[in-house]
Amino acid sequence: MLVFCACNLPNPQTVDYDRLLNLIIFRLDEFVENDYTVVLFTSGAKFNPGWNWLSKAYKRLDRNYRKNVKSVYVVHPSLWSKLLFQIVGRIVRH
Rank of each mutant, 00 (worst) to 15 (best):
L2G: 03
V3N: 04
V3I: 15
A6H: 03
N8Q: 14
N8L: 13
N8R: 11
Y17T: 04
D18W: 14
L20N: 01
L21K: 01
I24F: 12
I24M: 06
I25W: 00
I25R: 01
F26N: 10
F26P: 00
R27K: 15
R27C: 06
D29V: 03
E30W: 04
E30K: 15
V32Y: 10
E33R: 08
N34S: 13
N34E: 13
N34M: 09
V38Q: 02
V38I: 15
V39N: 06
L40W: 06
S43L: 08
N48I: 11
G50S: 07
L54D: 03
K56R: 06
A57K: 00
L61P: 00
L61A: 03
D62E: 04
R63E: 07
Y65C: 05
Y65V: 04
Y65N: 02
K67M: 07
S71I: 10
V72H: 02
V72F: 05
V72W: 00
Y73S: 14
Y73L: 15
V74S: 02
S78V: 01
L79M: 11
W80M: 06
K82D: 01
L83R: 11
L83F: 11
Q86I: 04
Q86L: 13
Q86C: 12
I87N: 04
V92C: 07
V92F: 10
